[in-house]
Each structure stands twice: as structure tokens, then as C-alpha cells.
């Protein structure tokens, strides 16, 4: 092993990662593209009673029952509507498949480590624990979400905890 510091090592690993950029209202978010399985339209979601409101229900993804989470509701966005642009990003998180509803998917971007700034401490809605950082690209700002941590967190109530 040579003398590389941990930070540099991590940076080298994260070098030029690709992100899928999606929009929630006017905000732009990004997630690691390797987590994304597919993108599909929002349709045929069966509601599940007695669950938090951001869990829209479950849908049939080629025979697999997949829960659908609306991040717009989770992040308390003002306008939540289901229109033609509304899509579901199907992600793979810790051997689980989860669909997340977003207002639209814009593009795939490659960010180099120096374009990713550490996330500042946030408020309650989106804890900075669930962020990998903020990406800056020209005058745009991308909120890079650590989708693994977010979807398996207690507050998402998606995963049954062993203690229960």
C-alpha cells in the first residue's frame, strides 16, 4: 500500500461517478446510477391501508410486488400530482426492489469528486445523513441522495426491523 490518505482513496473510488438526475418540483436530485434498475410510468398502484402517506402502495413489476414511495410527499413538496411526466424510478436497495415516484427524470450526469461538495447540516425534512453531498454543475445544484440509507431508514418504514 502506498501513502494515499483515506480521503484521497475515497475520492479515487468515487471518481467520475455517474448519477441519474431527477426532479422533485423545482429541485434537482441525483442518485447513483448503479442503484437504478429501470424507469417506468406511474400506473396501477394498489393502495395499502394504514401506512404512512408517502407509501403509495404496491405495484406489479413483472410478477414481483414492489412498494412505491412518493418522495415528493416524503419531502413535503407543495404540489403532488400524477401526470404524464410522473415516473417511477425502480431502484435496488439491499436486495430489495423499491419504486420511487418523482416528477421527472432529466438526464444522466458524470460528476468528478471535486464537483461534489459535502452537504451542510439540514433541517428535519431531509437529514443530511441521507445525502452523499451536493453536486454543482455550472449554475445547477444537485442534491445527491444516498438512496440506500434513505430507503432503509426507520422513518421510511419500508424495511421491517428485526426488533419488531
Amino acid at each position: 500500500m502506498n501513502q494515499t490518505t483515506d480521503a484521497a482513496l475515497a475520492a479515487a473510488e468515487a471518481q467520475n461517478s455517474e448519477f441519474l438526475v431527477f426532479s422533485l418540483g423545482d429541485e434537482e436530485y441525483a442518485i447513483d446510477i448503479l442503484k437504478v434498475q429501470e424507469i417506468r410510468g406511474y400506473e396501477n398502484v394498489t393502495r395499502i391501508a394504514n401506512t404512512p402517506d408517502f407509501i403509495k402502495g404496491v405495484t406489479n413489476l413483472r410478477g414481483v410486488i414492489v412498494p412505491i414511495v412518493d418522495l415528493r410527499i416524503k419531502f413535503h413538496l407543495d404540489k403532488v400530482e400524477y401526470a404524464g411526466q410522473t415516473v417511477v424510478i425502480v431502484v435496488n436497495v439491499e436486495d430489495r426492489i423499491v419504486g420511487i415516484v418523482v416528477d421527472g427524470v432529466s438526464d444522466v450526469m458524470t460528476l468528478s469528486p471535486d464537483q461534489i461538495k459535502p452537504a451542510p447540516e439540514f433541517g428535519v425534512t431531509l437529514s443530511s445523513d441521507f445525502l452523499s453531498g451536493l453536486g454543482s454543475l455550472d449554475d445547477r445544484m444537485l442534491v445527491i441522495v444516498d438512496i440506500d440509507k434513505l430507503l432503509t431508514s426507520d422513518e421510511m418504514a419500508l424495511v421491517e426491523k428485526v426488533a419488531e
Binding site: I48, N50, T51, V58, V64, I65, R96, A157, L158
Partner: peptide, 18 residues
Amino acid sequence: KNLETNYRKVPGVSAATI
């Protein structure tokens, strides 16, 4: 179909089907 594969146990519901 098991709901717990990708989601969790839901009260009042034993499983799902297509």
C-alpha cells in the same frame, strides 16, 4: 406473493397477489 420480499408486514393483510 409475499409482501415482505420487498416491503414489510402490513396489518390486516397476509399477502398479495396479481
